[in-house]
Simulated assay, not measured.
Amino acid sequence: MRHAARHRSLAVLLLLLALLVPTGGPSATAAAPVQVYGAWHCGDDYCTWSTPRTVAEFDAKNHWLVDRGDGRPSVNLVVLSFVDPLKLLHRTTDATTVNGVPAGMSREIVQYFTSHGIRVMLSIGGITYTDAWDAALAEDAGQLGRNAAAVAADLGVGIEIDYEQNTGPNLAGLQNFIDAYRSLHPYDASGADPAARLTLDTAAGDRWLIDLNRKATADWLRTDRPVLDYANAMVTARPASASTHTANWQEHLDGKSQFSPPVAPLAPAKFTAGLYLAYGRSPLPECTDFANSLQKATGDWVRNAAPNGAGTTAGLLGYMFWATEKPSTRGLGTQEPDGCEGGAGAGATAFGVPVPMGPLRQS
């Protein structure tokens, strides 16, 4: 009886230890969910969106975005790229533009996505419109912000700032733009108001767009007083290895204390990781083969990346992919009949991406 009692006591002790000490060390902690899984969309005319399109024609080339093969969308966000900031400021109407917005970014195209539970944003800028950003900010940054806010409310979309001025960006003007936008669409942690979603693109790592990145990290992407919802770490100059991508993303987490002035660390919950869908003339696994893709190879890192001076929770918000349909005059696009169901679509299933997108982590 004494031996049996000791065995029972030992069994109870081992059970308690097993409950108190998780196996596998840090890896036992649940990975953060992928909350943002989106694609920049360049339309069929190399990111100008200059021609109106019917929904039927658009769907024939983009159906994979709303159907990964089982009726569920492949992404939960589409960012229509790009709006010319100077035309938006002037509310230009011409052969390619309607009240400052490219003619192809129509209400019907927005509703094509939103009717499937996919959030839509408009990207202002891109590298082509860097000078236009400079001119618009210098002329009337506040009015540009108010015009962007009006378009967002009218179409039921969010706005992305893609200001790629690497040398002497007009940060005071951009602050005025943001202040004007937020005066009409205050920050909304719930994510319920599409027009309140305001984001920023920054470089893949911390060594380009440094002034913009420094300002954004210090003043707009803080978890204690958020101004922008999050930033997108854009793609590298060309597709790279998984280790190169994660090293770039780690720079945002670490900041650059050696810079003068320094760049502060960025909270993992305040940015997404960028990867290519298409590049050159060969399909990328990101589009066609999830099992051999970079999103699969980097998935554990992205979902478990630890804070290093900012934020309290681990894991980036998710992924953004460059770019859908025809982003360049050269190379391969992502048009049907194949689309990217086997890459991004399969990734949405593997990562359990929520459609529609829910509230985002705030810390």
Rank of each mutant, 00 (worst) to 15 (best):
L316K: 01
P194S: 09
N292M: 13
L171V: 11
L209R: 01
A189S: 13
L228K: 04
D229H: 10
A32H: 08
V83M: 07
L15C: 14
L155Y: 00
L184I: 13
R91L: 12
K215G: 12
G145K: 00
W49T: 02
Y163G: 01
A203K: 03
Q258M: 12
R330T: 15
Y187M: 13
T96C: 06
F259L: 14
E108N: 09
A216R: 04
A4I: 13
P268Q: 06
A39T: 06
F271P: 03
R222G: 14
Q165P: 08
V302A: 09
P186E: 09
Q35V: 02
A203E: 04
L137D: 05
S282R: 14
S81G: 06
P337K: 10
G315D: 02
Q295N: 14
N166A: 12
G347A: 08
D134H: 07
D67S: 06
A136D: 06
G142P: 00
T130K: 15
H245C: 07
T130F: 04
G191E: 06
K61Y: 03
P262Y: 02
N99L: 06
S257Y: 02
R225V: 02
V36Q: 04
L86C: 15
Y279L: 14
G311K: 00
Q165H: 14
S183F: 10
P186L: 15
E139M: 09
G158M: 02
T23Y: 08
P337Q: 11
V302L: 05
W133R: 04
L284D: 02
G125I: 03
W133K: 03
L77N: 03
I210L: 13
M234T: 05
L209H: 01
E325M: 15
K296H: 08
V12K: 06
